[in-house]
């Protein structure tokens, strides 16, 4: 009833986890059966190990939070040699979010992940707002976005998802550019660039001054962008941004997303993903929907 498809990926349900909010899945194994998920997008992975930005890296804002983690991760080699072996036998789609500062770094990481049998897809992160070089820089210009996707496409043979930033004038232009360059799917939105100031201390809350806004505050922006992109491209769209309930997930599905990702809500309720899956099933039963695809893109 809930099965859906992203290019060659069969998802048992449309609920995935968003990169950077779910670790490598292991952190949540005490709370949920990871095998129930449609997919797990693991932490953004780069060519080398990264320490990320200095503390403080987060601030709570109305109905959301700012973060400036800056892609702290173990690096692709440690991922392949250690982390992969701990998680590869999970019965769900494990997708690696691939980040970088240069096209060479994206390609190196993507090629190493391509060789891992149990990783059916990567999510190319051209939208991280928290790194000085690369990251969002690639995702804010259609030509540069297309260029990085084209180069990765040459060496990556499985499902290639490209994660888009909302910090652009026209997300549709970027989505079309990466579709033309060979992307199999797009996921959106990454965080919105934001800022918050501690007026008592008279300084920004984040060590980096600006950071990425996530949580329910960004959801209407995300639904709008998913709706725009879903009507403009022919590849499947994965929707994310502030999803914290089955009703939120349904908004994205109706707006045209074939699957959704849950991010910040994992921090508040580590079992939220399975509650959303149960909620989708319940919705289908209540509305006599036999196949979730019946409601995808109805708006």
């Amino acid at each position: 009833m809930l099965q859906t498809k992203i290019h060659n990926l069969i998802l048992k349900n449309p609920v995935m986890t968003a990169s950077g909010t779910f670790g490598y899945g292991e952190e949540f194994a005490d709370f949920i059966d990871l095998n129930r998920l449609g997919g797990i997008v693991v932490k953004g992975t780069t060519g080398e190990r990264r320490q990320g930005n200095a503390y403080p890296r987060m601030a709570e804002t109305p109905s959301g939070m700012l973060n400036a983690v800056g892609l702290q991760n173990v690096g692709v080699e440690t991922f392949c040699n250690e982390v992969y072996h701990r998680i590869k036998d999970l019965d769900t789609n494990i997708i690696v979010n691939v980040s970088g500062s240069s096209i060479e770094e994206y390609c190196k990481t993507a090629a190493m992940i391509d060789a891992l049998e149990k990783i059916p897809a990567i999510e190319l992160n051209i939208s991280c707002p928290n790194v000085k070089k690369g990251g969002m820089g690639f995702g804010t210009n259609p030509d540069m976005a297309a260029q990085v996707v084209r180069e990765v496409r040459k060496i990556y043979h499985k499902t290639l998802i490209v994660k888009l930033t909302p910090n652009v004038t026209s997300v549709v232009d970027i989505a079309k550019a990466v579709e033309d360059a060979g992307a199999d799917s797009v996921s959106l939105i990454n965080t919105l660039l934001g800022m918050a100031i501690d007026v008592e201390k008279q300084r920004p809350y984040l060590s980096t001054v600006t950071g990425g806004l996530s949580g329910p505050a960004v959801k209407p922006v995300a639904v709008r962008m998913v709706w725009q992109v879903a009507h403009a491209v022919n590849i499947p769209v994965i929707g994310l941004g502030g999803i914290a309930s089955a009703a939120d997930a349904l908004e994205f599905l109706m707006a045209g997303a074939k699957a959704i990702q849950v991010g910040t809500a994992n921090f508040i309720d580590p079992a939220i993903t399975v509650k959303i899956i149960d909620g989708l099933e319940d919705y289908c039963n209540r509305h006599g929907i036999k196949d979730i695809n019946e409601i995808i893109g109805i708006i």
Partner: peptide
């Protein structure tokens, strides 16, 4: 300062 408390958000 932290968000998740379980090692997922890497904020703290």
């Amino acid at each position: 300062m932290m968000a998740c408390g379980i090692g997922a958000c890497l904020c703290c």
